[in-house]
Design a protein around this nucleic acid. Structure first.
Lengths: 203, 203
DNA sequence: TTTTGTCTACCTACTAGTAGGAAGGCAAGG
DNA sequence: CCTTGCCTTCCTACTAGTAGGTAGACAAAA
């Protein structure tokens, strides 16, 4: 049985893991070429320029993310469980090192030198993630599950920053569990006291 | 009057701003050469390899940071004011774009592909910053200024992640004020209610 | 005189990207 | 059936430019 994934998907897969490891300038067509056993020129056939490659990659990532968040809504009606499930996803990724950093978060740190077509897509991801977190927090607050003093938009920004910062710390300290600690402690503070015992972070 | 800074300091200054903009792989000796009007070879005289250059740069940055935090202790005896002053520093840096990102935070995102001599220094910065934040939080808690449920070490990690994540968000959204919003909201939650009015974030 | 800093000139390895062609799938026309 | 032609995919071979790094000459300062 041949490998199912198309060549262009394999290229994006490899490129994604290389970007997550070292950013936009941290990989080359030659790296991808070596990883999947295809010539450099063949990669250019699928993605004429590096900027296009990464743009397509971010588009795919955004699409996967949005689909994931949507299916999360179908799976859990409870905003607290949605939030936990979101964090569990990253927890698992960071633990098994399959995707130990958000592609867009990493690219965001290099924002100033990204091609505009990439930068705008990264920005769009941040906007849509902020929107999603805001809606979950708002729903949770209305249902009396969450409690916070700020506007939901602000609280969402705080949470998003915590998650990205926790990824960074986990990487800096070379300690995946640190992500879990930080992220779970952060949402524990959101939960209403009487709800904290039932849905709070598991040990 | 000739420029006061030594050549090697000028090299480090330029390299730092280039790293902050695009990371380890985001700058070259040629970039520095062009920026300060010196030949590439002359830079190699001061810093034989790129890894050494960045190592020295991180050493200098760590030294400056530690000195800054020390002088901050001399200036303010109040832990809440120390914390505010720390955030004000970054606030100013990000607003005037002089140093719109922590060098070590940016390098941390590329940890996996940094030369070991650089990576270990970045890790050391994270450790010492965590230590400082822990001590400030602990002192503040003992004086009844702060309130939090976790151990001070954990709370320090949460705060550090928030600060770095806020830098990232400010960059991703291209909105310096976002850093201020997130960071100030985060420490506002630490402050004891009756203390919040006097030392809380200014409007 | 030795050291320090800078220079010109160069090196090898790698960068993104291009030119042009071979092999095969596929569909229309004979 | 077979041919023709298009399309996709991949290839070899190449380009111009940039990466980090080196060798050695020169001048000024210690």
């Amino acid at each position: 049985m041949k490998s199912m994934a198309s060549t262009s998907d394999k290229i994006l897969d490899v490129a994604q893991s290389l970007i997550v490891a070292g950013g936009y300038n941290g990989f080359s067509y030659a790296d991808i070429s070596a990883a999947i056993g295809i010539r450099k020129a063949s990669i250019h056939h699928h993605f004429p320029t590096k900027a296009e490659l990464v743009s397509m990659l971010v588009d795919r990532y955004r699409q996967q993310t949005e689909q994931g968040l949507k299916s999360l809504h179908q799976q859990f009606s409870n905003p607290a469980e949605q939030l936990h499930s979101y964090l569990n996803f990253w927890q698992a990724c960071i633990r098994d090192a399959s995707l130990p950093f958000c592609v867009c978060a990493l690219l965001a740190s290099e924002m100033q030198m990204l091609p505009e077509e990439v930068a705008s897509r990264v920005r769009a991801h941040f906007h849509s993630l902020a929107r999603w977190l805001t809606s979950v927090l708002q729903a949770g607050a209305e249902q009396g599950l969450f409690h916070f003093d700020n506007r939901p938009e602000e609280q969402a920004q705080m949470l998003m920053a915590s998650v990205h910062g926790a990824m960074l710390s986990a990487r800096a300290f070379d300690d995946p569990e640190l992500f879990v600690t930080i992220a779970n402690a952060q949402i524990a503070r959101l939960l209403e006291p009487d709800y904290r015992k039932t849905v709070g972070p598991r040990p």
